[in-house]
Every structure is written in structure tokens, then in C-alpha cells.
């Protein structure tokens, strides 16, 4: 027996070496992940910003930049339904993000601050709902929307997407509100502020990182959704960009270059959000116990 785990820290390997090993492994892991993530992104950019003739010259894929063009994007906007698809995506994403965030904030606050019969059950049901894969919900939702005559409407897709993002959002806000001390609210009540006013002026500002994390999550669910849109929407002019772009390749005039240009367009909003709101995102998810 070596007796590992006994003795003072640094007995077998000096603390300095341990620290060095830790740092090197963190950097290596980060590097590996970065390479995995950035190569596909580079390929996307390289194809999107070069003329198809350059990229596919000589029967191979040429990924080194030697010319630069926006012609793929121009073609997208003139020859395809891309503007319409983007508009659809925007409408559905915005409304679903709003609805899911409002729902999560309200439900999270209620779960944290009020005692009611079946509270634990409700909380568990919410988390359980999050476990379902979207496709499991897709067929029943289709049946429901078909019965209600809501297929091919923004409203239906908004509801469907909210159904996917809200459970996690509720759970996140529930966790977040637990970190807001009740004394903050009580002190506002005693100073004369009503419950609603306290919620707006004290609770929500303090819970902003959680709310923003929830909003970002619902945004990314809605913006990146393919499954629900494919099920709920059946007319070309109602497709969001995800579904729309996937159909480009069926057409003769549209090739990989245009598809990659569409992919670039799709990536821009999430990229911008990640860039500007990453602090909030980290704070919000930290409390949820995720890192």
C-alpha cells in the first residue's frame, strides 16, 4: 500500500507541480474544445464568402481564402425566400422568448414564495417535462393544433417552442429566486410597496441575471428549432430560416455556397448574444448549479 491520500498536501507531488499540471491540463482541454468548435465554423465561413467556382475548383474543396465575395448572400436575398424565412424566425423567436421568459419568471417566483398544495409535484412535473425530447411532443402537439385549426400559424409555433423552453426556464428561475433574500421584499412591503410593485422594483432587478439567462435559453431553443417548425408549418412562406435553408439543396440553382451563407446568417444573432451577454449567462447558470 502506498498510503495515498494520507499525509499533508504536497507530500508526494509538490504543490507547485500540482498547480502546473492543473494549468496545463486546463489549457489543453480548452484548446481541444476550441479546435473542435472552430474548424466547422471556419469551413462555413470559407465556403460562404468565396465564389462557388473558386471553392469547388478542380473537383476538390478549396478552403484557403484566395478571393472574397458577397455574391452568395446576394443570390440568397434575390433568388430565394430567405428574407421571408428570416422574418418568420424573428417573429416566432421573439414571441416565444417573451412568452417563455414571462412564464418562467411568474412560475419561478410562485414556486419560491408561495406554499400551495401539490407544489413539489408541480416542480417535479416541470423538470420531468424538460426530459422529453421535442420529437416526442411533436406528434401530440400536431394533433392538438390540427384539431384547433392552428397549424401554419405563428401562434402555434410560438406555443410549441415555449413548451420546450419553459420547463427549463421555470426550473432555472425557481433556483434563482431562492437566492434572492426574502428580507429584500419584506423590507419593501414594510416601506409601503405593494407586492406587485416590489416584484417590479426589487425582485426583478435583483433577479436580472437569471431572467436574462432564461431569455437567452428560450431564444436559442426557438431560433435553432427545426423539429417543431417542420411539424407545425407546412407552407413555404411560413418556414423559419432553419427549415427554409435545409430545403435549398433540393433546388438546382442553390448550392453549398449559398447554404453556407444562410448558415452564416443564422449564426449571427446567437453569436452576438453570446458576445454581449455572456456575463449574465454565466451568472444565471451558476446559480442553477451548472457551470
Amino acid at each position: 500500500m502506498l498510503g495515498l491520500g494520507k499525509g499533508p498536501a504536497g507530500k508526494y507531488v509538490s504543490q507547485r507541480t500540482q498547480e502546473r499540471v492543473r494549468r496545463v491540463s486546463v489549457i489543453l482541454t480548452a484548446l481541444l474544445v476550441a479546435i473542435f468548435v472552430s474548424i466547422p465554423v471556419y469551413v462555413m465561413i470559407a465556403i460562404a464568402f468565396q465564389p462557388a467556382t473558386t471553392t469547388f475548383r478542380g473537383g476538390t474543396v478549396n478552403l484557403l481564402f484566395d478571393s472574397f465575395t458577397f455574391e452568395n448572400f446576394v443570390l440568397l436575398f434575390t433568388d430565394t425566400g430567405t428574407p421571408r424565412y428570416l422574418f418568420n424566425s424573428l417573429i416566432v423567436t421573439a414571441s416565444s422568448t417573451l412568452l417563455a421568459t414571462a412564464l418562467s419568471v411568474a412560475a419561478g417566483y410562485g414556486l419560491t414564495r408561495f406554499e400551495f398544495r401539490g407544489k413539489t409535484m408541480a416542480a417535479r412535473a416541470v423538470l420531468f417535462a424538460y426530459m422529453f425530447s421535442p420529437i416526442v411532443l411533436a406528434i401530440p402537439l400536431y394533433v392538438i393544433f390540427f384539431t384547433l385549426g392552428l397549424l401554419d400559424s405563428y401562434f402555434a409555433l410560438t406555443l410549441a417552442l415555449t413548451g420546450i423552453s419553459a420547463p427549463f426556464g421555470i426550473w432555472l428561475m425557481w433556483q434563482y429566486f431562492q437566492t434572492v433574500p426574502i428580507a429584500l421584499e419584506e423590507s419593501a412591503w414594510i416601506r409601503g410597496a405593494s407586492r406587485t410593485r416590489t416584484l417590479w422594483e426589487v425582485v426583478l432587478p435583483v433577479a436580472r441575471p437569471g431572467t436574462i439567462a432564461t431569455a437567452i435559453f428560450s431564444f436559442s431553443v426557438a431560433w435553432n428549432d427545426f423539429t417543431m417548425a417542420r411539424v407545425v408549418m407546412s407552407q413555404d412562406e411560413m418556414y423559419p430560416i432553419t427549415v427554409g435553408a435545409s430545403l435549398f439543396l433540393d433546388r438546382v440553382t442553390i448550392g453549398w455556397s449559398e447554404t453556407m451563407a444562410a448558415a452564416v446568417l443564422m449564426s449571427l444573432p446567437p453569436f452576438a448574444i453570446a458576445l454581449f451577454l455572456q456575463n449574465y449567462l454565466l451568472q444565471g447558470f451558476n446559480v442553477g448549479g451548472l457551470e
Binding site: P181, A183, E186, S187, I190, G192, A193, P205
Partner: peptide, 15 residues
């Protein structure tokens, strides 16, 4: 809200 009381909390509770 309607008691015209003020309270100082153990946790201080500043916004």
C-alpha cells in the same frame, strides 16, 4: 404596508 412601521433586518437587506 399599512402599519407605518419601519424595520431594520438582521441581513441588512439593502437593495
Amino acid at each position: 404596508q399599512d402599519r407605518n412601521a419601519a424595520m431594520v433586518f438582521q441581513s441588512i437587506a439593502l437593495y
